[in-house]
Computed example of a mutant assay.
Amino acid sequence: MFKKLLGFTTASVLALGLAACGSEDATTEETPAENGAATEETSAHIGEQVDFEIIGIDPGAGLMNITINDVLPEYGLEDDWTVVESSGAAMAAALSSAYENEEPIIVTGWSPHWKFSDFDLKYLEDPLNLYGGAEDVHTIARLGLEDDHPNAYAVLNQFQWEPEHIEYVMALINEGTDPAEAAEQFANEYADLVATWTDGVDSVDGDELTLLYVAWDDVIAGTNVVGSVLESVGYDVELTQVDAGPMWAGVATGSGDATVGAWLPTTHADYYAQYEDDFEDLGSNLHGTALGLVVPTYMDIDSIEDLVVE
Rank of each mutant, 00 (worst) to 15 (best):
Q185H: 13
A262F: 09
A180P: 12
N35Y: 02
N65V: 09
G234I: 14
A215L: 00
G206A: 08
T223D: 02
D126H: 10
H287A: 05
T42D: 05
L193N: 13
S284F: 08
K122W: 10
G176E: 07
E40R: 03
E34F: 00
R142T: 12
D199T: 05
A44G: 05
G47Q: 09
S255I: 08
D207L: 15
A273S: 10
L282E: 01
D281Y: 12
E280P: 05
N101E: 01
V219G: 00
D118K: 03
E238Y: 13
G256W: 09
D277N: 00
W81E: 01
N285T: 14
D270M: 13
D278P: 06
V308P: 00
S43V: 14
L172G: 01
D126Y: 09
Q160E: 07
A98C: 06
V260F: 14
G7H: 09
G133H: 03
I55E: 06
L63C: 07
A273I: 04
T198C: 14
M64E: 13
I304N: 07
T177I: 15
I105H: 06
G176R: 08
E208Y: 00
T266S: 10
L124C: 09
V137D: 15
I68T: 13
A15K: 09
T198A: 07
F2Q: 13
V204S: 14
N69I: 00
P150Y: 01
N69H: 06
E305Q: 05
V226Y: 08
T223F: 09
A38H: 01
V295S: 13
E189V: 03
T27V: 15
I66P: 13
V13A: 00
D306R: 00
A269Q: 12
G88Q: 04
A215N: 08
F52L: 02
V226F: 10
G292V: 04
G88D: 00
E146K: 15
G288C: 14
T27W: 13
D51F: 10
A171G: 14
G62A: 12
S117F: 01
T67D: 00
L18I: 15
G76S: 02
Y298M: 07
W81T: 07
L293T: 04
V294Q: 05
T210W: 05
A244Y: 11
D118N: 01
P73Q: 12
W161L: 09
G36F: 03
E34V: 04
T10D: 05
V251A: 02
Y75I: 07
Y235E: 09
T67C: 03
D300W: 04
A98T: 05
W114I: 02
D118Y: 06
A252R: 15
T240A: 02
D236A: 07
G292E: 06
E48Y: 01
A19G: 11
I106Q: 12
G109D: 03
A134C: 04
A94Q: 05
S255T: 03
L156D: 15
W197Q: 11
Y75F: 10
D192K: 07
E135S: 15
Y272S: 15
H287L: 01
L130E: 11
I173E: 14
G245F: 15
E41Q: 11
V137K: 11
N69R: 04
L5V: 01
D118T: 04
H165N: 15
A182I: 10
H138S: 14
Y235S: 12
A20C: 07
Y272R: 09
I304T: 06
G288E: 04
L6R: 13
Y168I: 09
G250L: 10
L212C: 08
W197D: 13
V214H: 06
G200H: 05
V214A: 06
